[in-house]
Write a protein that binds this DNA or RNA. Sequence first.
RNA 1: GUGCCUAUGGUGUAAUGGUUAGCACUGAGGUUUGUGGAACCUCCAGCACGGGUUCGAAUCCCGUUAGGCACCCCA
Length: 438
Amino acid sequence: MFNKLSTESYKGVRDFYPADMAIQKKIFGIWRNIVEKYGYEEYGASILEPADLYRAKTGDEIVNEQTYTFTDRGDREVTLRPEMTPSLARMIAGRRRELIYPLRWYSIPNLFRYEQPQRGRLREHWQLNVDIFGVDSINAEIEIINIAYDITRMYGLSDTDFEIRVNDRRLMDYITRDVFGLDEVQAKKLAKLIDKKDKLQPQNFELVGREILGDKFEQFLTLLNSENFEEFTSRLPQTKEEHIGLKNIKAIIAGLEKLGITNVIFDQTLMRGFDYYTGIVFEVYDKNPANRRSIFGGGRYDDLLSLFGNDKISAVGFGAGDVIAKDLMETYGSIPKEDGSIAQKGSSTDIMICIVGIENTSYALDLAQSLRLKGFRIAVDLSGKKVGDQISNAGKRNIPKVICIGDEEVKTGKLRVKDLDGGEEVMMMEEEIQKIIK
RNA sequence: GUGCCUAUGGUGUAAUGGUUAGCACUGAGGUUUGUGGAACCUCCAGCACGGGUUCGAAUCCCGUUAGGCACCCCA
């Protein structure tokens, strides 16, 4: 006896049967279509990277515990990419003198994280990455958010279903350091606390908050609980010049409004990755109470290329995952919910040629080849089954038309083209087939 | 890493602790060697694994494994 192999896919990764692949292709199609409308070019990279690429940016702990890292036969440490941005930064840094700025690039990589899989989070997922390099002004943020908005609409959400939340890292730095006078360690703690505000019980939030801020906690809480941007601003200490973060947020909200995007709000609790972003950060949120969550996240990261010892290049970008895209499109109706069928809905084959009598096989194969040269997508049923089964089989594959080849057709050259939706059959010569397809 | 839940043919499911574990779909074959989606018939195929309780376990208990969900984390 031997142990039978499991047919399960590896934990946290997915198989894409044709029906799943059709959905995946549709999502990727939406992504490509929109970003290319904005002039973005596609790039790619290997899923393998030296582990150092991620160590430099994050910490050993994250690399060791949350990535797939192994040693290759040449004793090099290799990591399956957990995100695309370091690869992108590496590629741009390597050719920084040859590239033409502003640079608009996108990619749809698969990314790997070693985590416990759960709803909306797997060990492998595909993520659209959209980045613009070399634009210092907030026009970069506006363009990137505009793209994120377009994609969200294309998922099937209307403006009232979601909101775009923006904040600025420099504003938060200003508040934690200058207004409350925290050192770097305490500032980070506070940032983390702000990020978790909605998850924690108010008492726990206050407990930790007081630990960091002492009696300044009330002032902090008032600031954090501001209803809107104006109120928030008015509660900040007045300075001679308006803070750059405030100025940026205001300009972005106004700029997007000019483009007809009005569901943008300032969110003082929005943090996102601490060491990564240098300016504006944003998230697109699904407001549906059933699955309140982030659809996209992104922001400005002007310092990343300095990892490679080069000058800074300003950058703004965001990422969008395929798992959430699929969930949303099912929820908001732009794709049907899974029905468990294996076959794809619309077949990629135009005609199935059925063979009646094995002696007619070579005629059928010649016909298939001839039709392919004319541009049709033709499959031949080689099963040798009864013609009824062959037709039934084509129907199950959602192939729209069949042609049966038997003695009669071989003798006369007249083909009976059967439409599997309506069931009617039309007699025609080979040359006439293009009339009924496309 | 922690907690909770779940585990019956390929899929979806049924079975007060008591017959040979039932049904539907799928698959293979047939009624029907030239026309599908219908009907009927036959066949393939299952209690995740290991212990325990019991006269008797798919069913109750324990452990293991796997999966889901949540926490942690989310670069």
